[in-house]
């Protein structure tokens, strides 16, 4: 039995005349103990999906189960066994670390002691500050406390809606390390994020855009499906380079990517020399050009392009 099963979920908001489709025929499955990422920008429908699965929102059509229970009919059973960290979740700012944790433990009919083992590794990092009010914690520590609160009743499925949004790169890395450790405990985790680079830390991901799932697979498989040849290009003048490459007649797609520009050609027959020639002709210097390994972000851009046309 999958931990989460979603079938043909459709969710619309707004008036009947001008409905806004938040989720458009979404289906996915998460197996037990899997770390599953829902990757997409703001407004892609991630939060709607999370709210439907956490029984907070009713879908217009389609079915979904969590731990085998129907999200509509058996929502009470689901509420007993899931952990949920909503987006922008901010705890009670005027309660201390320990008071927050104790409160959520009691609300979920358990105590800190009962499941301390599960949160121990995370909690020891914030325990020195247990008498500090949550409002006075740093972003990273708040996030750890929020995770402890969502875990305190040993949920079988954990829902984390954009836990790393607005968090710096270091705290993000630490957070993902914690999730990996939790996976070892057999907890299924559904996590959403707008950061494409986090996809590679998941077992499987769904790339979602405008309410539609564009691809579901293991990150490396998604990348393997990107069959086009991709070049990394740089020169001394990056802005002009981008502009020139975008106007190159053989360019299918070119966009900035970190210190390089990523370039996909319409016709590969000319190879490296043809590009070099073109650029030298335009007086670019310090040119670097080599084959690039695409990553999830390249795939996302590619899939977005396919969807638009």
């Amino acid at each position: 039995m999958p931990s989460i099963a979603v079938e043909n979920i459709i969710k619309k908001y707004g008036s009947k005349k001008e409905p806004v489709t938040a989720l458009d025929d979404v289906s996915l499955e998460v197996s037990k103990g899997e770390l599953f990422g829902v990757i997409g920008p703001d407004g892609a429908g991630k939060t709607s999906l999370f709210r439907i699965l956490t029984t907070l929102l009713l879908a217009d059509s389609g079915t979904a189960t969590v731990d085998g229970f129907d999200v509509v009919k058996q929502y009470k059973e689901i509420r007993n066994r899931i952990g949920y960290m909503p987006g922008k979740f901010s705890l009670y700012q005027d309660l201390t670390v320990e008071e927050n944790l104790r409160f959520f433990a009691t609300i979920f009919n358990t105590s800190i002691q009962e499941n301390y083992e599960l949160i121990k590794e995370i909690y020891v990092q914030i325990e020195p500050f247990k008498d500090r009010r949550a409002g006075k914690l740093s972003g990273g520590m708040k996030q750890k406390l929020a995770l402890c609160c969502a875990l305190i009743h040993r949920p079988s499925v954990l829902f984390l809606d954009e836990p790393t949004t607005g968090v710096d790169a270091v705290s993000r890395k630490e957070f993902w390390e914690m999730l990996k450790a939790l996976k070892q405990q057999g907890i299924s985790i559904l996590v959403s994020t707008p950061y494409m680079d986090e996809a590679e830390l998941c077992d499987r991901v769904a790339l979602i855009q405008s309410g539609k799932i564009m691809s579901i697979d293991m990150p490396q498989h998604i990348i393997q499906k990107f069959t086009k040849t991709m070049w990394s290009v740089r020169s001394a003048e990056m802005v002009r380079l981008l502009n020139d490459l975008q106007h190159y007649s053989n360019t299918e797609k070119c966009y900035a990517f970190g210190e390089f520009h990523h370039l996909v050609l319409k016709n590969e027959s000319g190879g490296k020399d043809e590009i070099l020639q073109y650029l030298q002709h335009l007086a670019h210097h310090e040119i670097e050009l080599h084959l690039a390994q695409p990553n999830i972000e390249d795939c996302f851009i590619e899939l977005m392009g396919n969807n638009k046309s």
Partner: peptide, 24 residues
Amino acid sequence: DEPTGGVDPITRREFWNLIYQAAE
């Protein structure tokens, strides 16, 4: 201040194009 948080990868690049134009 964090102008591109949560924005999709294509729009993020379009945004940076605007930044380049302004800088020029």
